[in-house]
């Protein structure tokens, strides 16, 4: 009976994951491996293709998913790439300005603004997913805020991994592939934003988790009982323990030949915290050095006094 309960929990979280996250790993890997036929993504590899990409995205039909229709007001209504689908699929760049005036910079500016908009929307998706974890909404409301504040960027980085390979990342719901070299060619410190995420993702992807594994792992991250300032740790740890049991069973069943996968996955949580710390410090540096820098209010809330 206990194993049956753990399997039911895994199914529930997988269904919530499919409901709230628009681009699954299965879809992303199909796009990246060229299995989507004529619908190959547009490749952005330099400033010229970045501008062409903006045109490209404006001319294409936007594949709004059924569950997204009710929230489409959040993602539509801005110009450029933002109008189609804001920026990086699970963008976490959190910036609005990338330089001086000029036609090229205007495109860059819109791109980075769109990253922020998409990040805010992704936070909403993660919040909805968190609320679907059994017991989460019964936790102290302050603790729910704390768990999201500290967990959401870690979740976004995990969600970005399936969209990445060693050469670049999918953005705009898989319609565009932006190369790693192009992102590295941006001026400092913008060029430093994504490289640590690529390094992490390439290693993380070797674990070959599927979407149902990912759903459980994301819930484990959210239910971390050691976040600073939590008022009532015990019920959070109890919830996490149940999800951990479910994840361990899930991995044994779906990856029987992958030794120590559960332990390897838990170790990734340590790496994640360092990536988030470095990311937040980079954003704080940007706020000081970029005159026009304006953080989205939701991202400000999350990053203020984070690390």
């Amino acid at each position: 009976p206990e194993a049956a309960d753990l399997r039911a929990l895994a199914r529930h979280l997988y269904e919530a994951y499919l409901k709230y996250f628009p681009l699954t790993k299965a879809k992303a890997r199909a796009i990246l491996s060229g299995k989507t036929g004529d619908n190959a993504p547009f490749v952005i590899h330099d400033m010229k293709s970045l501008m062409e990409g903006e045109q490209f995205i404006n001319c294409r039909q936007i594949p709004i998913l059924e569950h997204q229709q009710q929230t489409s007001a959040l993602t539509l209504g801005h110009g450029g790439i933002t109008a189609a689908h804001p920026g990086s699929e699970y963008g976490i760049m959190g910036m609005t300005s990338i330089g001086d005036q000029g036609p090229t910079d205007a495109v860059e500016l819109r791109f980075f603004q769109s990253c922020q908009s998409r990040s805010a929307e992704a936070v909403r998706e993660v919040t909805e997913f968190a609320k679907s974890i059994p017991g989460f909404i019964n936790l102290d409301l302050n603790d729910q805020v704390t768990l999201l504040k500290y967990g959401v960027i870690e979740v976004l980085i995990i969600m970005m991994s399936p969209l990445m390979n060693k050469d670049g990342t999918l953005i705009s719901y898989g319609q565009i592939f932006m190369t790693r070299e192009f992102l590295k060619s941006l001026r400092k410190p913008f060029c430093q934003m994504m490289e640590p995420k690529f390094e992490f993702s390439v290693k993380f992807n070797t674990l070959e988790l599927d979407d149902s594994d990912m759903a459980l792992f994301l819930a484990v991250i959210i239910l971390s009982g050691d976040r600073p300032g939590l008022l009532n740790v015990k019920p959070i740890e109890q919830l996490q323990e149940t999800v951990l049991h479910s994840l361990e069973l899930q991995l044994k069943l779906s990856h029987p030949d992958s030794l120590q996968l559960f332990a390897k996955l838990l170790q990734k949580m340590t790496d994640l915290r360092q990536i988030v710390t470095d990311h937040v410090h980079l954003i704080q540096l940007l706020k000081k050095t970029e005159v026009d820098m304006c953080l989205h209010p939701l991202l400000q809330e999350i990053m203020k006094d984070l690390y």
């Binding site: 009710q70 959040l74 936070v123 909403r124 409301l141 302050n142 805020v145 704390t146 809330e301 999350i302």
Partner: peptide
């Protein structure tokens, strides 16, 4: 804490209805 995180708080309290982010 929830006072300092009004938007997060709002996201947690609301259902799936659109929130003006």
């Amino acid at each position: 804490l929830k006072e300092k995180h009004k938007i997060l708080h709002q996201l947690l309290q609301n259902s799936t209805s659109p929130v003006d982010l």
